[in-house]
Amino acid sequence: MNENLDLVEILKGCPKLKKKYNMERKIGEVFECDGKKFQVIEDPIEECDGCYFVKGGCTRSLDIRGYCGKINRKDRCAVIFKEIKDINKENKQSILDEAKSIVEGSRQSDYGDPVESFERISKAASMIAGKDLSPNECCAVLMAAKIVRESYSHKRDNLVDLCGYAEIMNRINESKKKGE
């Protein structure tokens, strides 16, 4: 079979194949195929970058993994299928340790001291909202966003960021105590 043929065109002419391949995996879903675990990840630019199945041709294991192109999916979202080798090996750090390393490391070097950063954020948010918002309130809003996202679909990053914001809120409260 020519891999360059459009799958939609192939399926139009064969109702039996269309029924067999008429499935789609939900974004975030984890499934097994050929003894390996995969997760369905949204691909907003539809470039297939990082998709495990690109290597062997997009039609391989279609009956197990489902459609990936937004034109073929009911949710109209393109996806890739990323192999999950070993979740425990991939995420050696606990979410608390990861959050701490981010707050004290990369974010601090990118944006400065988190307490000072949230002072600036609260000033900007206050201007936008037309009322005074404290650094704690701004932190709470970002925490709420992470909780809402996590309640929709699990993503480790949501929990890591939530822990990071909790640490920043604690630092804001501790700096208030020192300033009193």
Rank of each mutant, 00 (worst) to 15 (best):
G164W: 01
M169K: 13
K146S: 03
E29N: 08
C33F: 04
V141M: 14
D132P: 01
F53I: 00
A99G: 09
G56Y: 14
C163S: 03
V148C: 10
P44H: 09
K146W: 03
P44F: 07
V54F: 02
K85I: 09
F38L: 06
I168Q: 06
L5H: 09
Q39W: 02
Y152I: 11
S61C: 07
K74W: 05
K36T: 00
A78F: 11
S61Y: 14
N22H: 06
D157A: 09
N2D: 15
E167N: 10
K19M: 03
G112M: 04
K37Q: 11
S61F: 13
Q39I: 15
R60N: 14
V30N: 02
D63F: 03
Y21N: 06
E104D: 13
I172M: 05
E98C: 06
E174N: 12
I84K: 00
L133W: 04
L142M: 14
T59V: 05
G56H: 11
I168E: 05
E137I: 06
I102K: 10
Y165H: 09
R107V: 07
G35N: 09
G164P: 03
D113S: 01
I80R: 07
E137R: 13
R156W: 03
D161Y: 13
S117G: 05
G179R: 15
I41P: 04
P135Y: 07
G179K: 15
R149D: 13
G50K: 09
F31G: 02
K26I: 02
R76F: 10
K74H: 12
R156L: 06
M23G: 12
K92F: 03
A99D: 05
K82P: 01
R76T: 11
A140F: 05
G13H: 15
S94G: 04
L5G: 02
Y111V: 02
A125P: 05
C14K: 13
V115T: 01
G66N: 10
M1W: 12
